[in-house]
Design a binder for these strands. Sequence first.
DNA 1: CGGGATGTTGAGGCAAGTCAATCTAAGTGG
DNA 2: CCACTTAGATTGACTTGCCTCAACATCCCG
Lengths: 248, 248
Amino acid sequence: MHCALGSKPPDCVHCTVRPHALCSQVEPTGMETLRSMARIALFPNRSVVFDQGSVLRNVFIITRGMVRLFRLMPDGRRQITGFLGPGDLLGGIKVKANAHCSAQAISDLVVCGFDRSSFSAFLQANPTLCMTLLVVATDEIEAQYDHAMLLGRKHAAERIAAFLLLLSARWKPIGLNPNVVGLPMPRSDIADHLGLTIETVSRTFAKFKQSGLIEVPDAKTVILSNAPALYDLAGFEELPDSRMAIGM
Amino acid sequence: MHCALGSKPPDCVHCTVRPHALCSQVEPTGMETLRSMARIALFPNRSVVFDQGSVLRNVFIITRGMVRLFRLMPDGRRQITGFLGPGDLLGGIKVKANAHCSAQAISDLVVCGFDRSSFSAFLQANPTLCMTLLVVATDEIEAQYDHAMLLGRKHAAERIAAFLLLLSARWKPIGLNPNVVGLPMPRSDIADHLGLTIETVSRTFAKFKQSGLIEVPDAKTVILSNAPALYDLAGFEELPDSRMAIGM
DNA sequence: CGGGATGTTGAGGCAAGTCAATCTAAGTGG
DNA sequence: CCACTTAGATTGACTTGCCTCAACATCCCG
């Protein structure tokens, strides 16, 4: 870890991400215990939160910023398993665990960090929270099923369309315009998440622009000019509703 | 469901799959409760256990046989998200849930079925079991990460090698020879699981035969004549150890 | 001993990958 | 404030691994 853990969060009640995070499921008395366990930590952009295979000592709830989760092969091939943002749980819940993926900040990152064994003890003492987490994990499995369908059976255009719509849905509950999608990650990350190359990602964006499906005012912003058409393209059975994510 | 639920299991103590199933984590007193909730059910080969989108009323622990879990696109493209066998948990744990995948028996299937809400209540009353299940779900997420790497970044040969080794590892704890791998599923299932076509699967098997990596005495059996070479090919970081699986 | 389902093999095509050149944006230092 | 550098993104030309289509082989079960 590149960044020492700091102080307790001063105030959970007015925390902006709490409504969308695991902590919202904890009743007031438990909340005080949880807050006393938490330590705020900052990871600057590009810093590594943990490395594939390393021993995990903490669990994090993301407050601000985003991380990419990925696995590497010895020859450098990379699969990005997901992106985590505000409200998401990073690091998994097994008490003794080595990181299955690497996690790296793709913007300046603020997190609440917890000692794994303390967090686990807290879980065990809060069956309701435990059940909630089970549902979160279950949702993550379903999301991974969808991603397997994307990687195994969808064309480049379908993958990109699906990706844009999922990103769009991700920020809807925070009240952002769902038709203006920010892309905090570079093209190489999109490629490695969707099982494509940066060239194919770029070409597909170009094709979408030409067909009037999207506009790309700058490389980090996409405007969905024709969301319904994208939706058809993406080949979703049902739009997965926005959810709290978990990654490890 | 094509098959009415039958009687309680007569005897959990001598159950052959219990050591490898969730029930092994339940202490004797809870076990009696669990047994009284269980109903044995049979699904003949090819029968549908549940359909994508249908309302789930039960959770199943598989006693004998195997199922494929898959999602379909309107045009017929299929992604098999996994195969479940003895000891695995089928149907997920959310109390109110529609099936995210379809589940179909690929051999005659025997299961212990539980009413979802009763099972959930039992879970809530058994924090230890709940934590265990959380670990199982976590392991499933990690397995899906690996599968994403396979689908997004691995060549056909690497995919097939990985698949064979995972199948081999799956049956090791039951004491089967890990170098003789049974393939209960047809080639089309392997293809739809690995994001390939049946032709590519067949051709890759042929290439492996030619290189002396495997022998294929009949279409449903593969002998790993050179497991270490397959292991290199598969591009695993570490061999995922055998685990209890969960699917929904 | 048929006949349908499943598996294998071959020929040719194409979607996406590879390689390479160019363009753009964001810093950085003089 | 502007030349210079560098990382990231785009575009084009070419290649290729896998898919598609088609023919044939094999297995299984009545």
